[in-house]
């Protein structure tokens, strides 16, 4: 053999001590966030089962069932505050439940801190966009809009 390989002393890979830097445990973040996220996941899951199956039952099975669904059906539902809040709860819980799930997947699978950071930025931006847009639609939805002074009247709209 030519040049003798450089042989490191056992466990000398770290400048700080015996543990290689990538295995050093960081100080760890105290606080309740992870516990609350874990709890939210379980509670929102239970509530979502009720909300989603209620939603599916009312939309697909009651009355004429799936044949009744059209623009007017949705407009009719959102004229009722009960269904507005039902859909709002479904939107928020499903989005936060899903976001939290993807957040844990990113934490588990992204190895580099920068990758982890940017994936989460994209995730949170997408969540914020969808939650805000969805909330706006549920509360500002107008089935009989007036555009440039012209009424777009459908047969379910109140007579002018």
């Amino acid at each position: 053999m030519s040049a003798a390989p450089e042989i490191r002393a056992p466990r000398s890979t770290s400048q700080t001590g015996r543990v290689a830097p990538q295995y050093l445990r960081s100080g760890g973040a105290r606080g309740q966030f992870e516990m609350l996220a874990w709890l939210f996941m379980r509670l929102s899951g239970i509530v979502l089962v009720v909300l989603i199956f209620g939603h599916l039952f009312v939309n697909l099975l009651v009355g004429e069932g799936i044949h009744a669904i059209d623009f007017g059906f949705v407009a009719g539902k959102w004229a009722d505050p009960f269904w507005q809040f039902w859909d709002l709860a479904m939107l928020w819980l499903a989005m936060l439940h899903g976001t939290n799930g993807v957040r844990t997947i990113i934490n588990d699978y992204a190895e580099r801190d920068s990758v982890r950071f940017w994936l989460k930025v994209v995730l949170y931006a997408a969540t914020a966009l969808i939650v805000i847009l969805g909330t706006l639609v549920i509360f500002t939805f107008d089935p009989c809009p007036v555009i440039d002074g012209v009424r777009h009247v459908a047969d379910y709209c109140p007579a002018p």
């Binding site: 445990r25 960081s26 760890g28 973040a29 105290r30 606080g31 309740q32 966030f33 992870e34 516990m35 996220a37 874990w38 844990t104 934490n107 588990d108």
Partner: peptide, 14 residues
């Protein structure tokens, strides 16, 4: 319990 109620504690168990 306080030590394990950490970002890297029991809540990372899948």
């Amino acid at each position: 319990l306080e030590i394990l109620n950490d970002k890297e504690g029991v809540w990372r168990c899948r």
